[in-house]
């Protein structure tokens, strides 16, 4: 492995005066982006909670059909990946290359495991005939099947939107893993892992809210 001297000084973009001005700007920019993501999800949550307020029995009955135990385990997986990405961030600050790359890879693995389990869950719902769109047969034997369709529309929309954001987060971490592998500029890698860590923690927060409101509130 070529061991060129590690760059101790931080590379500063021409428009910035100092390194911490640059880091502050990056963090502020990332937090503002997370604000937009939060408001994006809260728009969908508003629609869900308005309908939940209007059709609470139908939504509770429909929520009863979901695999809440499997999804509960999945949530634990995602929380673990939240831990590993935070530790990776900390390791990067401490310039510990092996720990950073290892924990980052572990985070990606946990994320992929989550998506795999989610895919399995979708497949079992598909087989149980609980997909109310793409003109699939909707076989829901509980009370009030029409409003149950509305619930499942929201179930697939919210979890689908979340899965899309996970894919974005995973690919970002994948890029960081590859580009940071040779550890040429550890400050840049630390900054990138810090930003990706913020995004991944946000994805965790969204899943905690999605899991609770879709699976648990209705039971």
């Amino acid at each position: 492995m070529t061991s060129r001297s590690n760059r101790t000084t931080v590379i500063i973009a021409h428009q910035f005066e100092s390194a911490d001005q640059q880091l502050d700007a990056d963090l502020l920019g990332m937090w503002l982006f997370l604000v937009t993501e939060l408001l994006l999800f809260s728009g969908a949550f508003l629609a869900f909670s308005v309908y939940y307020h209007q059709y609470s029995e139908a939504f509770s009955a429909a929520a009863g059909e979901l695999h809440w135990l499997l999804a509960g385990f999945n949530t634990a997986l995602l929380l673990t990946s939240g831990l590993t990405v935070a530790l990776a961030e900390q390791a990067a600050v401490e310039n510990n290359r092996r720990a950073t790359l290892g924990l980052l890879a572990l985070t990606i693995a946990l994320g992929l495991a989550f998506l795999a389990l989610k895919g399995y869950e979708y497949h079992s719902e598909y087989r149980a005939g609980l997909i109310p769109f793409l003109d699939q047969p909707f076989a829901f034997d509980g009370p009030d099947p029409i409003h149950a369709m509305l619930f499942y529309n929201f179930y697939f929309t919210l979890t689908g939107l979340h899965a899309l954001h996970m894919i974005i987060g995973l690919s970002a971490m994948g890029v960081i893993l590859v580009s940071g592998y040779r550890w040429r500029d550890r400050h840049r890698v630390a900054r990138q892992v810090r930003i990706a860590g913020l995004y991944w923690a946000f994805v965790d927060i969204v899943w905690v809210l999605v899991y609770t409101s879709l699976y648990l509130v209705g039971r």
Binding site: Y55, A58, P143, D144, P145, I146, H147
Partner: peptide, 19 residues
Amino acid sequence: LLPSKQVAAGYPAIMPSFQ
């Protein structure tokens, strides 16, 4: 049109939907 939306108390939800 949506009988199971508001089922009256004390009655089984057996009314068919005429939607």
